[in-house]
Design a protein around this nucleic acid. Structure first.
Ligand SMILES: NC(=O)c1ccc[n+]([C@@H]2O[C@H](COP(=O)([O-])OP(=O)(O)OC[C@H]3O[C@@H](n4cnc5c(N)ncnc54)[C@H](O)[C@@H]3O)[C@@H](O)[C@H]2O)c1
Ligand SMILES: NC(=O)c1ccc[n+]([C@@H]2O[C@H](COP(=O)([O-])OP(=O)(O)OC[C@H]3O[C@@H](n4cnc5c(N)ncnc54)[C@H](O)[C@@H]3O)[C@@H](O)[C@H]2O)c1
Lengths: 217, 217
DNA sequence: ATATAATCGTTAAAAAATTAACATAGATTA
DNA sequence: TAATCTATGTTAATTTTTTAACGATTATAT
């Protein structure tokens, strides 16, 4: 058993959602137990790494047996905070903001979008799946009154920093940021970036790399 | 000067879009030269790491002077393959597919969406910014005739694997995947995942972690 | 019930990534 | 023009991450 005061590395943390995904599949398929070896075969990490990773959080397995799928799944869920429910708001009700509001899976996982906010008068008053688009002026009050834990930032790059600062003023401590910019905020604010263009550029890097290799032959 | 045959590590590659972003900002601001030290201050990597990273691709700087911003920016662009243009298609014209089709920045960067494909008859025939939503049956022909280089996969998880296999059959070699699944495809197919829920779960991990720390105090 | 096999948790080794050090090329200044 | 300073490219050291090894424990088979 590991002391939990030791900081878990980012590399491990970013693998957790993947474990979660595969374990969910195992649960769905009715599989009751799994060894690190078999999980390794499926997920593509080494068995050693899998055991190391799980042991950052405590021993969930049993020697000679392996891991109980259901138990492990629930542990990973707890570690990821997916046993909690979080009220969220989406700031910027454009293409992406609306797409996310429409996505029902996040609510199923405990992330409930309580409102969208925008400055565009044409959008204000509309609803998406029953979730209202409100005037940005109402945001402070709304955050105070609705126990909002996460803000999903979907405004254009140009004003994302300023909007983020406003959010922090209103007491928001966690931001899921889609604007292609690195927000500069107080240290106690958790920011997780979903930089889609970064991901696309990595794809195009790989393509350019392959192109070059082909030419060399 | 480095031999370019040596494989560049994934860690380096995933930092490149960030360099690109910051250099673009410098260009925008009319800044002509920059040292690794100053770039470090802005971007948050160590100066040493920045120099190491750039040197994976060749020496773009000058001792005693630093880096010419414009030159470095253009080099990074080339390395990322952003000097090329790519025809793309979006498969699955739902929330996310439409949001991406509506996003004009990708086209500005050289990624042109030529069509969307769906199975839903209600969507087929509609257009998004002049880009048609076509029947999935037309996809093979379209891919052949339009020099499509990238497929953006936005179908539900359940059929993403099957759709991806069809894409590969049609000759697609690069997939930008938004479905929350790890696609199992031949090795010569480049897959870049944009697993949004993974990113959200990391955010919720951080929140749970903070919660725990607060309790311990 | 005992032996055998499976597989974890953990420690050790190896590999990879990051940071630091520094010699040197070139810019700048006097 | 010479002297000084700056900041790269590169090599070396350090740190982190990953992989391998293995003793201990439990399941399973005989
Ligand atoms: N759509 C995509 O596929 C995509 C891809 C990569 C990155 N992004 C990024 O995600 C963000 C949103 O993209 P999008 O396509 O939805 O853009 P969008 O233009 O469709 O939507 C932005 C919305 O933000 C609103 N807005 C502007 N300023 C605001 C403010 N101060 N407060 C509240 N709302 C404000 C606008 O009225 C608009 O409705 C952008 O930063 C974009 O760069 C989007
Ligand atoms: N919207 C989000 O915010 C979000 C967030 C995270 C992940 N995702 C993932 O992105 C993908 C798309 O999400 P979405 O919200 O746009 O879903 P969606 O249901 O709005 O759209 C999916 C579209 O795919 C089409 N489709 C289904 N089967 C198809 C097939 N075989 N060929 C072609 N088209 C087909 C459907 O008709 C539908 O229009 C899903 O895998 C989802 O899990 C979405």
């Amino acid at each position: 058993m590991q002391r939990r005061t030791s900081k878990v590395s980012d590399a491990v943390i970013r693998r957790l959602p993947r474990y979660h995904r595969y374990l969910e599949e195992l649960v769905r398929d009715g599989i009751k137990r799994i060894s690190s070896k078999e999980l390794s075969r499926r997920i593509g990490f080494t068995a050693s790494q899998i055991r190391q990773d799980f042991n950052c959080f405590g021993g969930f397995g049993q020697q000679g047996y392996g891991y109980n799928v259901e138990l492990l799944y629930n542990e990973i869920k707890k570690i990821l905070g997916l046993n909690e429910r979080y009220n969220t708001i989406i700031v910027g009700a454009g293409n992406l903001g609306q797409a996310i509001a429409n996505y029902t899976n996040f609510r199923k996982r405990g992330f409930e979008v309580k409102a969208l906010f925008d400055i565009n008068p044409k959008l204000i008053g509309l609803s998406i799946r029953g979730i209202e688009i409100l005037d940005i002026d109402k945001m402070g009050e709304f955050v105070r009154d609705n126990d909002v834990k996460i803000a999903i930032l979907c405004t254009p790059r140009e004003n994302a920093q300023q909007v983020a600062e406003t959010l922090v003023e209103y007491g928001i401590k966690s931001i899921w940021n889609f604007a292609p910019i690195d927000l500069d905020l107080p240290n106690d604010v958790i920011v997780e970036n979903a930089h889609l263009s970064d991901s696309l550029y990595v794809l195009s890097y790989r393509m350019a790399e392959r192109e070059k290799e082909n030419k060399e032959k």
